[in-house]
Amino acid sequence: MRVDDRAARSDFESWMAAKQGRLLRTAYLLTGDVHAAEDLVQTALAKLYLAWDRVSDAPSIDAYARKILVNEHTSTWRRLWRHREVVSDTSAHDVPVRGEEYDGVSDALWSAVRSLPDRQRAVVVLRYYEQLSEKEAAEALGISVGTVKSQASRALTALRTRLGDSSWDRDDLTGWEAHR
């Protein structure tokens, strides 16, 4: 292994150690399933590693990684042959738990978010959890800003209907962690 290769590998490993938890949380919110989230993150990290030489000097590696994550997730729900595997045995450590910064909003909110259609859920996660702008969310999803706006509007209307207008607001969509 060349010195340059070792340095690049070390840079990637350092970046990954710092960012893997956030990617996992975002993937969990996109998929609604811990195991699918782990698979999604592994795929995204593998693709990022293969492109590391080109993107390691980019201004925002995080944005590039998030785009890979979202694109991979989008690919899974666009495939005609998509199927869900049902896990028959789970342990308590795979259940999402409240992070220290969790602000007390009931689990009903995230249950309702997970029940949204895939694209609406992706828009909600990127706009309100990841706090991306409409333009950034549109770029990550490969859709127009207008589509982001309409999907967000539909998602928020559905959440208000399911949860009632006064039980939550958009700021409640922060502070969720999926722990292993």
Rank of each mutant, 00 (worst) to 15 (best):
W77M: 02
R79A: 11
L80V: 08
L80R: 11
W81A: 10
R82S: 13
R82M: 09
H83S: 13
R84G: 09
R84I: 09
E85S: 13
V86L: 13
V87P: 03
V87R: 13
V87L: 14
V87Q: 14
S88M: 12
S88G: 14
S88N: 12
D89S: 07
T90S: 15
T90N: 11
T90R: 15
S91R: 15
A92Q: 09
A92G: 02
A92K: 07
H93F: 15
H93S: 15
D94C: 05
D94M: 14
D94Q: 14
D94L: 15
V95G: 01
V95D: 09
P96K: 06
P96F: 05
V97K: 12
G99M: 06
G99V: 01
G99C: 13
E101C: 01
E101M: 06
Y102D: 14
D103P: 02
G104C: 03
G104K: 09
V105Q: 09
V105P: 02
S106K: 02
S106V: 01
S106T: 09
D107M: 07
A108T: 05
L109C: 10
W110C: 06
S111W: 01
V113E: 04
V113M: 02
V113L: 09
S115G: 01
L116Q: 05
L116C: 04
L116Y: 03
Q120E: 15
R121C: 01
R121F: 04
A122W: 01
A122N: 03
V123E: 00
V123M: 00
V123H: 00
L126S: 08
L126T: 06
L126Y: 08
L126V: 07
L126D: 06
L126Q: 09
R127D: 04
R127C: 09
Y128D: 13
Y128N: 08
Y128R: 10
Y128V: 00
Y129V: 00
Q131W: 05
Q131K: 10
L132T: 04
L132G: 00
S133F: 12
S133W: 09
S133V: 07
